[in-house]
Every structure is written in C-alpha cells, then in structure tokens.
Write a protein that binds this DNA or RNA. Structure first.
Lengths: 314, 314
DNA sequence: GCCGCGGAGGCACAATTGTGCAGATTGCCG
DNA sequence: CGGCAATCTGCACAATTGTGCCTCCGCGGC
C-alpha cells in the first residue's frame, strides 16, 4: 500500500517476466537464470503482474458464461447485456467473482476518452484487480457519492483511486462525507463550488458502474458504519430494501423519501438515469431484493451478477 | 484435428472448469472432486480451454510491450499503431510469439459486424490460438489469395477455417490455387463467378490481416512448395525481396512485374490499399527486407513484429 | 558505533501440476 | 460373439511452483 506506484523500470521488468512465463512458456527457473534474478523474485514479479493487470486472464465461452440465464435476464428486464458468473464450487467470496467479471467486462467495453461514474463497495474493489492495463487512453473516473471518514476496508476514495490507477484514468473525487449529519449540512456541502463542479461532471457520463447495498444483517452499510443501527431499523420500517449509489428504494423500485436518503450526498437520480450505459454489478442472494428493485426502476441496462442471484431474479 | 467442433456440452464443461481454476483459484484436484471428473480430464479440459480461446491470457504493460520501439516505428513509417514483442529469452518459434500478439490485438481491435481479409502463414496460424472467444458477433472472414493443393502445414484454407471458427465468423473461401500454371489459366479462374464474387467481397473490407513471405532459403514459399526452385531464382534475379499476399515487391516497395506475380490469384493491389486498417504481422530478421518494402509501399498502417525485426527497421 | 527494520537471496520442504504407463471400459466392425 | 481401437481411470513419478525460515545486507535512528 505504501509504494502504490512503483518505478517504471519495475513495470518493465514485470512485463518482461510475465511475457516470458505466459507467452514463451519458460519455467520460472529458466527466467530467473536468463534475467539473472532469484526464483523468488520471479514469483513475486509474476504475482504483481497478475494483480495489477499487466497479465490479464479472462474466461468466457463463445456465448458467454451461462448463456441461458444471461439471455433470460436480458429479456425479462430489458437489459442490453448481462453476465452471469457460474456458482462457485467452493465457498469463496462472491464479490471477488462478480468483481472479476466486472473488470473483464469493463476492459473490453470501455472506449478511449470515456467518462465513468463509479459507485463503491467490495465488488468494485475486486474489479480493479481484473482491469487490463494498456489499451485505453484519456479515461476519467468520477465519484458518484461521498466518502467515509474512517479507514473502512472499502472506502469510495480508495475505490476510486485504485480504479483510476489501474486504468490510467483521471480521478475526480467528491470530497465530502457520504452521509451528512443534517439536511442543512448536506446542502452546504452540495453548494460548495468544488463539490458542485464534480456533480456537474456526473451530468456528462458515458458509463456508470453502480453497486447495490442491501439491508440484510450482513449489509455493508452497517458493516462499514455508513449508517447506525437505528437508522437501519428506521429504513427497514420505511420498506427500504437497499440502495443504489445512495438512492434508497422499496421493493418495487420506487425511491423512498427518508431522512437518511435526504442526507446522502450523491449524484441525483435523474442524472444517473440519463447515462447511456448503466452497469450494475452485484452478487449473492441477499442482494436479490435491492437488485430486483433497481431493475424495476431501470436504474441499469447492464447487469453483472452470479448464478444464484440470477436464478432468484427469474 | 478430427472433431474440430466438439459438442456444446463439452464447451460448457470447459468453461466451467476453466472458471473454477482461473477465477475461483481452486486446484485441479478440488475441481475433479466437485465435478466428479478425473484429474487427468481436468488437465485436458484446461488445456483445451487455453488452446481454443475460452481462456485468454494477455500480457501488456501500461504503454505496450516495448514502448520506445513501438513509438519509433509509428513515427518513422507513419503507422497508426504497432506492437513489438520482446525478444525471446530462449530459442522458440518467433511466429508463435508474433502470432500470439496478433491474436491479442485482434481480439481487442475488431468490432461487431466487421469484414476481415486474411492472408496466410504460420503467424496467422499461431494467432488463431490467441483469439478470445465470445464478445464478437457477425464477423466475416475473406480469403485474400488462393489455396495450395497439397496438405501443407499452413494452408490458406486451413488458416481461414480455424480463424473463422475461433471468432465464430462467416467464412469466404477463395476456391482456387494460389499460383496458376499460366496467366490464361489464372484469368479463367478469376472470371469464374464464384471467385469473382469473393473478390468483390475484398472490395468492402474493414480490416486486412496481411503476412509477409520473404525470399531467404528458409522462406515459406519454398518450404510449402508455393513456387519452384527455378521460379525462386528467377524472382531473386528480378530483385524481388518477398511478397505480401501475392504482391511481389522489390526493396523499395515497388511492385515487380514477373510471371509468378501475374499468375498469382489474389485481391488486387489497389483493393488492398483501399482498406482502412491494414495489419501486417511478421517477425524474424529474415523478413526485414520484405517488411521494409511493405512499409515503404504503405501496404499496412498497423505493424506487429518482434524486437529483432523492429530494431532492424529503425 | 550499535540496534532494529525491511527487503532480498538461498535453502528446504510441501503442494500442485504434468506425464507416462498398465489396465479397464466403451463402442464399432467384421 | 470376438477382436480392435480409442478413450478414460488410477497410479506413480518427475517437474514445477509456492511458502516458510534463516541469513545477509544496507539504511536510518539513537
């Protein structure tokens, strides 16, 4: 975490080693000999190459991963495309898998010069590790909702910076808390020139990458202290099933007017709806309700999810 | 080679296994247990997934593989882009490496619905193994020059069919010999409706994938019996340094009028020049002269090559 | 100068992967 | 029905890869 940006020579070496290993098919030992490195170091360089996107491994059949489910989701909910990752054979973190699929998808889907709005969460965090380096130029990334104060495991700021650095994109932070203490405070933030400027950027996005927060006990909202237990209970009483980038929805996809919602600093609903390509990535059955709500509200036209959730939605 | 197209269930299983291995990170043994397969079979399925593009491994730094050389080539020869693969650490077949880079590049570069003209040779053969499956739709591939009669290792027909099946593209064969016995014979072929129709297709290509044949002793032209030893000598005397898809050039990139050239059945020079994106993939210093000639003639605006040849060109 | 810290190399061992071989099974053909 | 060929399985072994541990070295603080 300390030297996020290692020097260029290092990157060079990683590329060379990864090429020799994955393309030329040499063994680690051969590479170590030829390049005069220890085998240990070769292993380490390979690992780094994999984790920062110099090496990119994608898996996809001719018609996608789970053709029927993908097809069915598209038809049922009027999506432009969807990706359904196979159910994990072994426990494993679903966010890793869905995130990997998201990263893959974005690597192929984005075009030079596009502006991307970014949500936050474990899924996006995982996606950064699957973004392919190179190829794309002049991207910029914009934060869609405020940050968290404490150093949580997944912080929108951290999310954004990793994502941007993986793509070599410009970074537009929204330097404000996700949830203000009062509506008045939120308004003060919103009206500050810096924040208003970033908000304006969200009016000309090419793509959004959205994430869903659910209201279950294991919800990230509680886990990372976005909201208090009391707020959580209050939201549940108001029939909220979760939120998409700070927009709280009931099970039919209607926005719920609630104190928490009014105090949340994020790009407005209409602005998000106007974006051409809206990608929602979420996995795990505990997110079924909120994802269904998002689909009903047409908040996304691309869905990336896992087999279990896909089946629940159909 | 027998069951080129294995049944869909097989493909399905491969995808599943590859996903579990490369994405979930399970060991082969775990996968064998969960899916009730022998470990041997898992290994085999993984290998098949890699070789037919279900699994795709790409290696590329943030600015490409050899940024300086790539940059320099673009400037010197007015290319839109170029890719230079690192020099192999160990012997190894250069065509495999350049071909892999070509496959990679095409996987990212092609767009839905495009029509691709295809040359032939070991490089293209290798590229088919690096084409990523899925993502692309409604492509079609057109053969740019005639085929060979004997079952050589790399036959344009074989090349084309592998390439097309890897991309799920339509296939347009040019059912005629690459080199006719006489000019009259060639004309008869050219005028036959079937062949004329395919030739017409080459007038509306979006992309061409060209290959260079050199005139050295180890040239593919001799190796695969395209031309006889006598013709080879005669071409050399006429200052021919090689050919690009049946167009024989001297070292300055001028077309050479020679009996062999006149008898070769291929898409005309002007037609090829009119194509928007013209990709030439060739590696190895023995191809330096013909590649330089091709660059001078502006036959390509994308070049994929290896480090050794790139340095020779600069 | 001394100490502690962090990174890199070397070594050894464990896990994983690749491959060859004998034997069983399947399906096809005569 | 028997034989044959192709394929799969289980097993064993070799190669490759991953990891922990110890040591050495350089560096900065005290």
């Amino acid at each position: 975490m300390v030297h996020e940006f290692s020097d260029a020579g290092e990157t060079r070496l990683i590329t060379r080693v990864c090429w020799a290993y994955y393309r030329e098919g040499l063994t680690q030992e051969q590479i170590a000999d030829r390049l005069d490195l220890s085998r240990k170091r070769v292993i380490q360089l390979l690992a780094r190459g994999r984790s920062n996107g110099i090496v990119h491994i994608s898996v996809s059949g001719p018609e996608g991963l789970s053709p029927e489910l993908e097809q069915a989701l598209c038809e049922r909910y009027g999506l432009q495309a969807s990706i359904v990752t196979p159910a994990p054979l072994e426990g494993g973190d679903i966010r890793e898998l869905v995130g990997a699929a998201l990263g893959d998808f974005l690597s192929n889907h984005l075009r030079n010069g596009e502006r991307i709005g970014l949500g936050w969460g474990g899924t996006i965090h995982a996606a950064t590790r699957s973004l392919r380096q190179g190829s794309l130029r002049d991207l910029s990334v914009v934060q869609l909702l405020g940050g968290l104060t404490q150093r949580a495991r997944f912080n929108p700021f951290d999310n954004l910076s990793r994502f941007a650095s993986a793509l070599g994109a410009d970074c537009n932070y929204l330097p404000a808390p996700m949830l203000a203490d009062t509506v008045e405070q939120k308004d003060i933030f919103s009206e500050s020139p810096q924040i208003a400027e970033v908000m304006r950027l969200t009016e000309s996005l090419d793509v959004t990458v959205l994430t869903a927060i659910d209201m279950s006990e294991r919800s990230g909202a509680l886990e990372y202290g976005v909201i208090t237990k009391e707020e959580w209970q209050s939201l549940k009483r108001a029939n909220v099933v979760g939120d998409i980038c700070g927009h709280y929805l009931d099970q039919d996809g209607r926005q719920v007017d609630h104190s928490v919602a009014r105090r949340t600093l994020r790009s407005p609903f209409q602005t998000l709806q106007n974006v051409d390509r809206r990608i929602l990535a979420a996995g795990g059955i505990h997110k079924a309700e909120i994802v269904r709500a998002a689909l009903r509200a047409k908040m996304c036209n691309f869905l990336i999810t896992d087999e279990a959730l896909a089946k629940h939605l159909l």
